[in-house]
């Protein structure tokens, strides 16, 4: 079976937004920027402000990918119906920085001042819930943790969802913050180089806007427009190359 990639969204140290707004995708290591609501959404949206940093970059990447696929315009969300879109993510560090901040509030007065607001975001799937609320999606939402979040496992899980016909569209990707300060000593040789979020909108049917076709062969190798990919960063790069060719040919 083959599927279509119709949108890309990302937050990286240098650039953030929808794939169609950029010419290439070559993320460099660096400190992630603070993301404000205005960077992501046109209209005020209260829940954005209460999210932790991990959730903000995940939520932003998800919304950018959906928007890039032409499936939403921020101002239409309020009136749209629910849909069965799934949103899934792979993360190496999860929301460890938030976990640490939360436990700081527990330590303050032996638990008296534990912050319920921070605890609510001490799970890596919290932003998936926020995205499902905002995008009105009732499909699967779950996070996985891998030693090296290259994204191939989550991509295959997205294929399984599309294959089961449970959802017509799946947003899948990777999301990680920079290594939190308190974990630096443990992670000086990190297995995960990418800090930021990178999401793809995959669909069963060809959409008006699409970057190309993606499929998996019987050996488990994944191909984008018939070229094998090694990870999601590679896939994003190839999608942007494909877009460039289409733009040049005016397709």
């Amino acid at each position: 079976m083959s599927y279509y990639i119709s949108g890309i969204g990302f937050v990286t140290p240098e650039i953030s937004g929808c794939g169609r707004d950029f010419k290439e995708f070559n993320p460099k290591p660096g400190k992630l920027p603070l993301i404000s609501r205005k960077d992501v959404l046109d209209k005020p949206y209260k829940p954005f402000g209460r999210m932790d940093f991990f959730s903000k970059i995940g939520f932003a990447g998800t919304c950018f990918a959906y928007k890039d696929a032409g499936l939403i315009k921020a101002d239409q969300i309020e009136n749209s119906e629910t849909c069965d879109t799934a949103i899934i993510v792979s993360t190496f560090l999860r929301c460890l920085d938030t976990d640490n901040h939360y436990f700081e509030t527990v330590k303050l007065q032996n638990g008296k001042n534990a912050s319920p607001a921070l605890f609510a975001y001490a799970l890596p799937n919290a932003f998936l819930g926020e995205a499902s609320i905002y995008l009105k999606t009732t499909g699967q939402c779950f996070a996985i943790n891998e030693d090296n979040s290259n994204g191939i496992t989550i991509l295959k899980m997205a294929f399984d969802i599309l294959n089961s016909k449970e959802s017509e569209i799946v947003i899948c990707g990777i999301c990680d913050t920079n290594v939190p300060g308190f974990m630096q000593s443990v992670l000086n040789n990190s297995n995960n180089d990418f800090a930021g979020s990178l999401f793809f909108t995959l669909s069963q049917k060809e959409q008006k806007l699409n970057y190309g076709k993606i499929k998996e062969d019987e050996n488990g190798t994944i191909f984008f427009n018939d070229k094998s990919i090694k990870d999601l960063l590679d896939l994003a790069h190839m999608c942007m190359e494909s877009k460039k060719i289409k733009d040049e040919l005016n397709l």
């Binding site: 609510a120 919290a126 819930g129 926020e130 609320i133 009732t138 499909g139 449970e166």
Partner: peptide, 18 residues
């Protein structure tokens, strides 16, 4: 089956929709 409520971050949807 797996599904989302799309209603609240810590509380379940009252009508059990998900």
């Amino acid at each position: 089956g797996i599904a989302s409520d799309a209603t609240h971050i810590t509380a379940p949807a009252r009508d059990g929709r998900g």
